[in-house]
Amino acid sequence: MPLILISGYPCAGKTYRSEQLLNFLTTKIASSTDPRVTKLKVHHITTENLGLSRTAYHAARPEKDARATEMSAVKRLLNRDTIVIADGLNYIKGFRYQMNCEAKAVQTPSCVVHVGTPVDKCREVNARRLSGEDKTEAYSEEDFENLVFRYEEPNGMARWDSPLFTVVLDDETPPFEQIWEAMVGSDGQAKIVRPNAATVLKPAMEQNYLYELDKQTSDIVNQITSWQKDHPGEDGGEVTITGVENHVQLPVTPLSLPQLQRIRRQFISLNRQHNLDKGRISLLFVDYLNDTVHG
């Protein structure tokens, strides 16, 4: 059943909203007479029930471990009869992309709920927690500002953030019915999501797959870099990639080589174990580039 990702600034009220959603879903299931609905279960994954501390965001290694812990919990619980609410920062779009891939791998839909509390209000809440007796729910000022700076707001135009539901600070009627309709449906049967080439694991690794993954993505980066050198001062543009039908849509600001290499490394990391069809690597990388740059 569906994966519902909660995202927002630190201290935005994500847990409050996810608990509201949890109560709505459990009530909806309990009041139904449809056996396809009554068999559903809801799991609420939080920082607390995963045993994670907010101090994990003070350094890169524990932060990476915290994300891995959340990912493992989602993979363990996600199945056809379970709705998983992943309540966390979920602030990195690459991580949300991975979560989307995990949902597709079990042929179930996913969505993102963005708790859109203004950063000044979040800062005020964190300061109040820091000055209170129980500081376990607070972030250090340095960590708070760093997380706000690095937050990559969900964008409904990106496939991994769609459908996107935004809940503003004073919203007394969050779109829970719309979430239910999109994720479960009026008939109580979640839509079956067809896995794409990027989420289906093949039984055996194709020969030279990692070599092709590295070579084809590197070739595309080189073609983009070369095009930008030949078209200095142009605002955006389309780069035709050899052997790929889709074009790379460049932003107004030219992409630097470090930016391109970072996106390339993200794509390789996400697909290292997915054993993509070698004939589709370039196409999927072009799509990923466009989504990342314009997402």
Rank of each mutant, 00 (worst) to 15 (best):
4 I>S: 05
9 Y>R: 03
13 G>T: 06
15 T>W: 01
22 L>Y: 08
22 L>S: 05
31 S>L: 11
32 S>M: 00
34 D>V: 06
36 R>W: 07
40 L>W: 02
43 H>C: 11
44 H>Y: 01
46 T>I: 09
59 A>I: 04
61 R>E: 15
64 K>Q: 15
67 R>A: 05
68 A>E: 11
68 A>N: 11
70 E>I: 11
75 K>N: 05
85 I>Y: 01
94 G>N: 06
95 F>H: 10
95 F>I: 08
102 E>P: 03
110 S>P: 07
111 C>W: 02
114 H>G: 07
115 V>F: 06
118 P>V: 07
124 E>H: 11
125 V>I: 13
128 R>C: 04
131 S>T: 03
132 G>P: 01
136 T>D: 03
136 T>H: 02
141 E>C: 05
142 E>F: 06
148 V>S: 01
149 F>N: 08
153 E>H: 07
153 E>L: 08
154 P>T: 01
166 T>A: 11
167 V>I: 14
175 P>V: 12
176 F>K: 06
180 W>D: 06
185 G>K: 04
189 Q>E: 10
193 V>D: 00
203 P>Q: 12
206 E>M: 15
207 Q>K: 14
207 Q>A: 14
209 Y>T: 04
214 D>N: 14
216 Q>P: 08
218 S>R: 15
219 D>V: 14
226 S>K: 15
231 H>A: 05
232 P>D: 10
232 P>H: 07
235 D>C: 15
237 G>H: 07
237 G>D: 06
238 E>I: 14
239 V>H: 00
240 T>R: 12
242 T>M: 14
246 N>T: 15
251 P>S: 04
252 V>L: 11
253 T>V: 13
259 Q>N: 07
267 F>V: 02
276 L>H: 00
276 L>Y: 01
277 D>L: 12
278 K>M: 07
278 K>D: 02
285 F>A: 01
286 V>M: 02
290 N>V: 03
295 G>C: 04
